[in-house]
Amino acid sequence: MSGTVGGAAGVIILASAVLLGVRRLMVPRAREITGPADYLILLLIAAIIITGNIMRFGPEHFDLALTRAYFGTLAIFGNPLDAPALENRVFLVHMGLALVLILCLPFSKLLHFGGILFTHQLIRRQ
């Protein structure tokens, strides 16, 4: 069950990212205001999605249970270095990029994903 839902989500989110990219490139009013940072962020997200999908649909199937063990070790401050999940290179890339994304959050326009919750409130008050 979770496999099917996760797989579908992976496909849908990839399609969304591609659509966002296409829109940015094709719609003049969006393209003309797009800077390097906008493309980089989009590429970063696309890379995370693609590596995720490779793990799921790729030839070398990746067992989700391994990530559970890995995060379990992290949660109890154990030593994660010998977790079997880390032997998968695609997972390393996927995880690494996701960490970069989280690092970017407070410093980039991605802030909007949190900001949207209170802009209207803030504007009305000031």
């Binding site: 719609v27 009013r29 969006a30 205001i33 797009t34 800077g35 906008d38 326009k109 802030l111 909007h112 900001g115 949207i116 802009t119 803030l122 504007i123 000031q126």
Partner: peptide, 24 residues
């Protein structure tokens, strides 16, 4: 004002404003 800082931080460059703008 915080609203001003927010305006500067979170624009996602989606281009929606252009569709609403009389000048554009």
């Amino acid at each position: 004002p915080r609203a001003m800082r927010l305006y500067l931080e979170i624009c996602a460059k989606c281009g929606t404003c252009a569709t609403a703008c009389p000048v554009y």
